[in-house]
Nucleic acid binder design. Structure first.
Length: 494
RNA sequence: AGCGGGGUAGGGUAGCUUGGAGUGCCCGCCGGGCUCAUAACCCGGAGAUCGGUGGUUCAAAUCCACCCCCCGCUACCA
């Protein structure tokens, strides 16, 4: 059986999940569901990145220890994902024991390979912020927040020989053309020319909330080095060898466009140094504005994904993110479009269709009957499934959404048209009715990655949830009438 | 500034890698149909010099050059 390993970044839990992290997670979840449905063995990893200065400071400011604080925040994230029916297989925390061991193991490997050296990190330190800035961050040579003078400070730090991997990275990109997100490919290649080594540690007296270096107990790992390795520890690099062997490497890693550099350059270089296989595809989505404006607290237009989901259901949010935001580019979360989409496409197209068919089936039939398959419907179903299989095999996630998923939604439109064309309520044709019932059932299976709530509601009227890979030929799937006489997938008023 | 992404009917998008009649989708608008259905559904129509100019070609939204407009990125804060 083929495997599929999909990841989201681990989110920084200094605040509750926001629309951006929900976006990444819902998209990843959709793919996890799709591949499962197509019969793949799937592992879906998400989690939180709990180390670092900012967490330490936020925690202390609120009167908690870092660990107490992240324990609370991890729960917040899990609750949010539960509300969205996120089907992750593991929720990793960088304070998990096996993660810490993984980081130490990889660091030791790289150190022994002579890819880590001791040096001086030079930066501009703002006493008020208690952090370093690079020269470019500064405003008139001063701290950008406090506008106070900064001190140039040198600290001991270990460096990863990132620059050493420049040529090998380029070579890798060339021989694996689908690795980089298409929209950002040229930018990354361009920036690669100025590749510098990466500071990967901080002395403990400056930062204590992190994972200790295996070769120097006075230092802890710094930010990304720790975070990126979650993809290894999460799949059992230390704790579950057989799982690791089954799933490594990730098939797709999904992220927002802000962290492309880390995933496309630093991450592969680390893996090269450690002698491990690289992920197959890095997939980046864009950022969202709200009604055309940047989301900000001062504008008061912050969209809380949990609130959206509580009111409208997670189907609506998924559907919006999948179809109303061009995947890979920036998009807008427009309340007007969102509400229109809800009432036109979810209530009117999908929801109304399901109810029409269910109600009508009870009016026309006492029980299911043998019927002659409508070729047009059956051919369309086969085409949809073939298409999804091909796109999935190629990890062509952009087209899975724009072609594969769109076609599933169009199928609902096709059924509405079929119903009108045949005027089934008038002819009372049992053959047509059975074709529609069969189609509705198959539609519910196809919808599972796109609209899991609707899918669940429809399939529960028949005999429960099925995978696409378990579907029988068109005409052989429905064995009983819907268990209810009507079904409301989406309420008109919410 | 350098680099990158985008500019397709009133709005939003797909198509561009591998050129072939402006082809598709959602919303809005106009006209018709239907009454099984959550005033939902279906059909038809109007509406685009595919940002501009020039080039390659029998043929360009699609390839090349230049220009204009919008938006990002330029890394050790995640």
């Amino acid at each position: 059986m083929q495997k599929f390993y999909v990841t989201t970044p681990i989110y920084y839990p200094n605040a509750r999940p926001h629309l951006g992290s929900a976006y990444t997670t819902l998209i990843a979840d959709s793919f996890a569901r799709l591949y499962r449905s197509l019969g793949y063995e799937v592992f879906f990893l998400t989690g939180v990145d709990e180390h670092g200065e900012k967490i330490e400071r936020t925690a202390r400011a609120k009167g908690f220890s870092p660990k107490e604080f992240v324990d609370k925040m991890a729960v917040e994230f899990k609750k949010a994902w539960k509300k969205m029916d996120i089907t992750y297989d593991r929720f990793i925390r960088t304070t998990d024991e096996d993660h810490e061991e993984t980081v130490k193991d990889i660091l030791a490997k790289i150190y022994n390979k002579d890819d880590i050296y001791r040096g001086k990190y030079e930066g501009y330190y703002c006493v008020a912020c208690e952090r370093y800035y690079t020269e470019k961050d500064l405003v008139d040579g001063k701290c950008p927040y406090h506008l106070k003078p900064v001190e140039k400070r040198k600290i001991d730090s270990y460096f990863f020989k990132l620059s050493k991997y420049k040529d090998r990275l380029i070579e890798f990109y060339n021989s694996n053309p689908s690795f980089l997100p298409p929209n950002y490919k040229r930018e990354i290649l361009d920036r690669l020319s100025e590749l510098k080594d990466l500071s990967i540690s901080r002395p403990k007296e400056q930062l204590s909330w992190g994972i200790e270096l295996p070769f120097d107990e006075k230092h802890v790992t710094y930010v990304w080095f720790d975070a990126l390795l979650n993809y290894l520890s999460g799949i059992g690099y230390i704790s579950n060898k057989s799982l690791y062997q089954q799933f490594w490497p990730p098939d797709i890693e999904i992220m927002g466009k802000d962290i492309i550099w880390f995933h496309c350059v630093i991450w592969p270089a680390i893996l090269m140094s450690a002698g491990l296989e690289l992920p197959k595809r890095q997939v980046a989505h864009g950022f969202l504005t709200v009604d055309g404006r940047k989301m900000s607290k001062s504008l008061g237009n912050v969209v809380d994904p949990v609130e959206v989901v509580e009111r409208w259901g997670h189907d609506a949010l998924r559907y919006y993110l999948l179809f109303k935001v061009p995947f890979g580019s920036d998009g807008d979360f427009s309340w007007k479009i969102f509400e229109e989409m809800y009432s036109k496409e979810l209530v009117g197209n999908i929801g109304n269709l399901a109810n029409r068919i269910v109600v009508l089936s009870h009016k026309l039939l006492n029980d299911v009957v043998e019927f002659e398959v409508d070729e047009r419907l059956s051919r369309e179903v086969n085409t949809i499934i073939d298409n999804l299989n091909i796109l999935s095999k190629n990890l062509d996630v952009e087209r899975i959404i724009s072609e594969g998923y769109s076609r599933v939604i169009s199928f609902a439109g096709m059924l509405n048209a079929y119903l009108n064309e045949k005027e089934v309520w008038k002819t009372k044709d049992k053959n047509d009715m059975m074709n529609l019932l069969e189609s509705l059932y198959i539609l519910s299976v196809l919808l599972e990655p796109i609209l899991p709530q609707a899918s669940e509601k429809i399939s529960s009227l028949f005999d429960g949830r099925k995978r696409i890979s378990e579907l029988k030929p068109f005409g052989k799937n429905v064995s009983k009438l819907p268990s209810e006489k009507r079904v409301i997938l989406y309420k008109k008023e919410v």
